[in-house]
């Protein structure tokens, strides 16, 4: 517990984290104001909903995995981890403590941003903040903090952690999609459809995006080609499976990170 408090204090004190909070608040408020003042009141998936989704899926994972990975790599690089090893603290406790501290810090960032959105929205007559969107934000934090910690244990130095985070982020958010689109030019539609379904499960960004469409009853946006897979995930078994895979995305990277640290210690 004390370790979590110390870590949280360090993260909240960092200028980088404060800038992230400012950026998120600014972007979300800007979208809300534009939506409120310039757009028709329509339900369903609009480009404004898409703007929120894009900002969330684009910026939040970037900051989370860079800050998360650099936090771990910084501990290794500065010798803070070596010092901690002299205390009666297990690797699992270290990883869990880091995870909780970083996740809490980002939760605070999101609460500040949503607080500003509600305040400005209240001045403009009220805004809708769908619960699916809030849940998606929380899942995004829980999954990508876990991934960030794993990347940090790989990297060892802060610069390498930054580079690795950027590569992984661009691969998950951009390159994987572009590769599939390029593949679509040479393979038939039904093969591309199966590849995309695989990608949904192995790419956490796509998994969250898929979850947003699924649970906001907007799965038709993904097109008729994905009717079967969305219908399955909208069933009770599908809901359970979605929850199970999401938990795996959180737990597996943390377990792997713990294992890597132990192996490093043994070496």
């Amino acid at each position: 517990m004390m370790f979590v408090k110390i870590e949280l204090k360090q993260i909240l004190r960092s200028r980088w984290m404060q800038l992230v909070a400012f950026l998120f608040t600014f972007v979300f408020v800007a979208i809300i104001v534009i939506q409120q003042m310039a757009l028709p009141d329509i339900e369903g998936f609009t480009r404004q909903t898409a703007s929120f989704l894009s900002v969330l899926l684009f910026l939040l994972p970037l900051f989370i995995i860079t800050i998360g990975s650099m936090s771990i790599a910084g501990d290794i690089e500065s010798g803070w981890l070596s010092l901690l090893k002299t205390y009666p603290m297990k690797r699992t406790q270290y990883i869990t403590g880091k995870y909780v501290a970083i996740a809490l810090a980002f939760l605070l960032v999101i609460v500040v941003a949503f607080g500003f959105v509600l305040t400005i929205g209240g001045l403009l007559g009220g805004v809708r903040l769908p619960i699916v969107f809030v849940v998606l934000t929380l899942l995004c934090i829980f999954i990508f903090v876990s991934l960030g910690i794993l990347l940090g244990t790989f990297a060892k130095t802060r610069l390498f952690a930054l580079a690795l985070s950027l590569v992984v982020w661009s691969f998950l958010l951009l390159l994987m999609s572009y590769a599939l689109m390029a593949l679509g030019a040479v393979v038939p539609g039904h093969i591309l459809q199966r590849l995309i379904i695989i990608t949904i499960h192995i790419n956490p960004a796509e998994w969250l995006r898929f979850g947003y469409f699924l649970f906001s009853n907007q799965a038709s946006v993904l097109g008729p080609a994905f009717y079967d897979v969305t219908r399955f995930y909208l069933s009770p078994i599908g809901h359970v499976l979605y929850g199970g895979i999401t938990i795996l995305w959180i737990v597996l990277p943390l377990m792997l990170a713990t294992k890597l640290l132990k192996e490093e210690h043994q070496r």
């Binding site: 949280l8 605070l108 509600l118």
Partner: peptide, 30 residues
């Protein structure tokens, strides 16, 4: 476009914002 005031949401927003900023400030002093 009606720029009417939604006082309930405004109050909730202000409370959330102030509380979260206070938590942030407190977190840096722990």
């Amino acid at each position: 476009t009606e720029l009417s005031l939604n006082s309930k949401q405004l109050v909730i927003g202000l409370v959330v914002t102030i509380c979260s900023l206070w938590l942030w400030r407190r977190g840096t002093r722990v």
